[in-house]
Design a binder for these strands. Structure first.
Lengths: 115, 115
DNA sequence: TTTGAATACCTTGCAATACAAGGTACTAAA
DNA sequence: TTTAGTACCTTGTATTGCAAGGTATTCAAA
C-alpha cells in the first residue's frame, strides 16, 4: 500500500493549496454554512475535514474576506451562514488569476514532458 | 500591502501542492540537477527555493521514485543529475490523474459560481 | 421523560513541510 | 590569493491540515 500512500499524500497536498480558493468560490455563488461548504466540496471530490474548515472560516472572517449571520434551522441547531465581503471578492479575483497561472505552468511542463 | 499579502500567501500554498508533481514531470522529460529543476520551474512561474528542493529530492530518492548520478561540470562543482525510476513513472501517472481531478473540481465550482 | 440519532458548532495537539538563512566546496578569473 | 559564480546541503522556525474529542440543539421513539 505504499504506492497509493505516496499518491494519496500528494492528492492531499494538492487539495490544501486550493482550500481557501474553493471556499471563496463557493461563497461567491451564495451564502453557505460550514457543513454545506464541506458537502459542496465533497461533491467535486475535494475532501475537507471539519477540523480544517472551522478554523479556516474563522481566519477568513478575521481577514475581512467573510462575514456571517446566524439562522435558525428546523432540523437541528442554528446555522452560521457565511457570506463573502467586497474585500473577499477582490481577493477572489486575485486567486482566480493565481490559479490560472498555476494551471498554465503545469500545462507547460506537461507538454514539455511529451515533446 | 495586506491585499497582496493574502494572495501571495495563497499562491505559495497552491504551488506547494504541486511541487512533487512538477519535479516528476520535469524529470520525466529528461535528467536534471537541482539548480536546473529550479530554473525550469521558474520559467513557468512556479517559484521554489533551494531549501525546499534539496530535501524534497532526497525524499523522493528515498521513496524510490528517483535516482541520481554525479557528473562533472566545466564551470563549477560536479552536478547531481536526478533521473526518474520506473516506480516514479508509475506514481507520476497517478499524480496526473490527481491533478486532472482537482482541476475539474475547481472548474466545476467556478462554473457553479457563474451560473 | 429519558434516551438516542442526527445535525451543527468548536478546540486541542500532533505531524508534516516549505523556506529563510547559513554553511561547505569546487572552478576560474582578476 | 582573493573574489565571483555555481552547486551542493542542513538547521530552525512557522504554518497549517486534520484526527480526535467535546458541547449544544432538535426530534422521535421507548
Amino acid at each position: 500500500m505504499e504506492n497509493t500512500g505516496i499518491i494519496e499524500n500528494n492528492k492531499t497536498q494538492m487539495r490544501r493549496g486550493v482550500l481557501e480558493y474553493s471556499i471563496l468560490l463557493i461563497l461567491a455563488a451564495g451564502d453557505e454554512y460550514a457543513s454545506s461548504i464541506i458537502q459542496k466540496m465533497k461533491d467535486v471530490n475535494i475532501i475537507v475535514a471539519e477540523g480544517t474548515i472551522y478554523p479556516l472560516l474563522i481566519r477568513l472572517k478575521k481577514l475581512g474576506l467573510l462575514n456571517y449571520r446566524w439562522e435558525e434551522s428546523t432540523q437541528g441547531p442554528p446555522r452560521k451562514y457565511y457570506m463573502i465581503t467586497e474585500l473577499g471578492r477582490g481577493q477572489l479575483a486575485g486567486l482566480d488569476a493565481a490559479w490560472d497561472e498555476l494551471s498554465q505552468g503545469i500545462e507547460s511542463i506537461r507538454n514539455a514532458s511529451r515533446a
